[in-house]
C-alpha cells in the first residue's frame, strides 16, 4: 500500500504530512509507504498509490495532475492533527 503526501514545493509541508500520516497508520495498525511529493511530480509519485493526502487549496490541482485515476485525493485541514488524519485514512483504507 502506498500513500503520497503532496504540497506545492515538495518540502516542509508535505514532509510534516508524511510524518503525521505515518503516526496515523501506526494507530490504525496499518502498514504503508508514505512518500512526499511536490505538485509537479505527483502524477509519477502517485501512479501506484491508493491515497493522496493534500490540502484543500491544492486538491483541484492534484486531481488535474493525476487525470483519470483510481487514486483517492483526501483533503487534510490541520496537518498536525493526527486524530483528523487517522479518521480520514480509516475512511479511505478501512
Amino acid at each position: 500500500m502506498k500513500i503520497v503526501a503532496v504540497c506545492g514545493a515538495g518540502i516542509g509541508t508535505s514532509a510534516i504530512l508524511k510524518v503525521n500520516a505515518e503516526r496515523a497508520l501506526e494507530r490504525l495498525e496499518l502498514s504503508a509507504d508514505v512518500d512526499a511529493s511536490d505538485l509537479a511530480g505527483v502524477a509519477v509519485a502517485a501512479a501506484d498509490a491508493q491515497v493522496i493526502l493534500t490540502s484543500t487549496e491544492l486538491s483541484g490541482a492534484v486531481r488535474e495532475a493525476i487525470g483519470r485515476s483510481y487514486t483517492e485525493v483526501v483533503e487534510v485541514v490541520n496537518y498536525f492533527d493526527v486524530d483528523e488524519i487517522t479518521r480520514l485514512l480509516e475512511r479511505s483504507l478501512g
Binding site: C7, G8, A9, G10, I11, G12, T13, I16, D38, L39, T54, S55, T56, E57, L58, A61, N78, Y79, F80, D81
Partner: peptide, 23 residues
Amino acid sequence: AVIEEFGAYVVIAPGLALAHARP
C-alpha cells in the same frame, strides 16, 4: 511566490503558517 502560485496551503494548522520555498 510559492503562496502566489499554490495558494494559502502553507497555513497548515489553525493560526500557523509554514513559509518555505524549494532549495
